[in-house]
Each structure stands twice: as C-alpha cells, then as structure tokens.
C-alpha cells in the first residue's frame, strides 16, 4: 500500500473540510435570491465610486516583512527534528550545537535590526 493511514486521514479530513465549507455555499447559491443590475457589483469603497484599479503597487515594507518571514520561518523548521532528538542526546555537545544555531538566528535579527529593516516605514534605496 502506497499510503499510510495517516496520509489517508489527512486526505479524508481535508475533503471533509472542503465539504463543510462548500456545502453551505452551494446551499446558499441554490436558495438565495439573485438580484442583478445597478451598482451591485461595484467594489465597496464606503459609498464612493471606486477610483482607479485596486491592483496597485503598495508599500514596499510589506514585502520586506514577507522576506523576513521566509528567512526565519524555515530556519525554525530545522529545529523541529532537533527538538525531538534533543532530550535524548547526550553531552554538552548537543547544547553547543543548538546554541550555535540559535545564535546565528539571533545574529540575523541583530543584523536586520541594525540595518533598520524593522523601522517602519522604511525607504529602501
């Protein structure tokens, strides 16, 4: 068998979630009234007529934070396998290795902090 029970369960529950979410939507689509015309489709801007497109460029700082997340999040990911092993590993060695990893993460934070990445809003030159 290619799949384990766990994988099967994951699929099953995801499908369940899909149905749970989709069901009411479909129900709603069936029984709800369908009005047309007028300004029903106009994007909502508190009653004003929309000005320009919505898909504009916006503050670059958001991107920067996304970048930061990518940089850190995956590094943290490495700690999960480590965490399971950690209490069972012996010696100071394990601690030193983990401390090394964490201090590099910390250094990264210091670096960004010093470089003013956390200052909002920030002009990127």
């Amino acid at each position: 068998m290619v799949f384990t029970w766990l994988q099967l369960a994951i699929f099953l529950f995801l499908i369940g979630g899909l149905l749970f979410a989709g069901g009411p939507l479909i129900l709603s689509a069936i029984i709800a009234p369908r009005a047309k015309g007028g300004d029903i489709g106009m994007p909502y801007e508190c009653g004003m007529k929309p000005h320009g497109r919505a898909w504009n460029q916006f503050g670059i700082s958001y991107y920067v934070y996304a970048l930061l997340f990518l940089a850190f999040d995956v590094d943290v990911l490495y700690l999960f396998p480590v965490s399971v092993w950690y209490p069972h590993a012996n010696g100071v060695e394990a601690f030193i290795e983990v401390a090394g990893f964490l201090s590099i993460l910390a250094l990264a934070i210091i670096y960004f902090w010093k470089k003013g990445v956390f200052t909002w809003p920030r002009k990127i030159s």
Partner: peptide, 13 residues
Amino acid sequence: KLIGKQLFTPAGA
C-alpha cells in the same frame, strides 16, 4: 440569514 443572502461577486474581481 447568511445562507439566505445572495452570493455576489464584485465587478472586476
């Protein structure tokens, strides 16, 4: 009430 409301898509979405 929510189920009974119309599902509409904004223009241009």
